[in-house]
């Protein structure tokens, strides 16, 4: 008999492989351990991150879906809502108890209704529309607000890096 967390992860994996949402590829790192996933996120079109393929890791707790997974960008990122070490700061990844930035209502927090797909889609839309009010990366927030051109350049560089292309000169 397998635990409910594993069952649900398997169900979500199946769902994601059958109808993958556009711009997202996700699955467990190996089939032995369904609690560690990797996901590739395509930078949304018409944004500074357009065309990039960003690698992320998802770590699921044993009580998933009661607690949210931990998500982290493995590719280098420069974004107001991504910590310099790659951790992602979006509200649906926070369980209702904790609020690192002190601005979230519990309505936008994690609940078992959320899913991996929703998380990844939220992260995609976060790439498209940063929320500078909850700056996980203060430098990026500042640059995004004050010097958009520079920010776009930085993002462009990261896109090229994520595709293993030489940096533009």
């Amino acid at each position: 008999m397998v635990g409910s967390a594993l069952k649900r992860l398997m169900a979500e994996y199946k769902q994601l492989s059958l109808n993958p949402p556009e711009g997202i590829v996700a699955g467990p790192v190996n089939e032995e351990n369904f609690f560690e996933w990797e996901a590739l996120i395509l930078g949304p079109a018409e944004t500074p991150f357009d065309g990039g393929v960003f690698k992320t890791s998802l770590l699921f707790p044993t009580d998933y879906p009661m607690s949210p997974p931990k998500m982290r960008f493995i590719s280098d990122m420069f974004h107001p809502n991504i910590y310099p070490d790659g951790r992602v700061c979006i509200s649906i990844l926070h369980s209702p108890g904790d609020d690192p930035m002190g601005y979230e209502t519990s309505a936008e927090r994690w609940s078992p209704v959320q899913s991996i797909e929703k998380i990844l889609l939220s992260v995609m839309s976060m790439l498209a529309e940063p929320n500078p009010e909850s700056g996980a990366n203060v430098d990026a927030s500042k640059m995004w607000r004050d010097d958009r051109e520079q920010f776009d350049k930085q993002a462009e560089r990261l896109v090229r890096k994520s595709l293993d292309l030489p940096p533009d000169l």
Binding site: M66, S67, S95, A107, S111, V113
Partner: peptide, 16 residues
Amino acid sequence: CLRSWFQRQQTCPTCR
């Protein structure tokens, strides 16, 4: 399922 969720939070998972 509901019980394990209520151990963490006492809201409806769907509409809170």
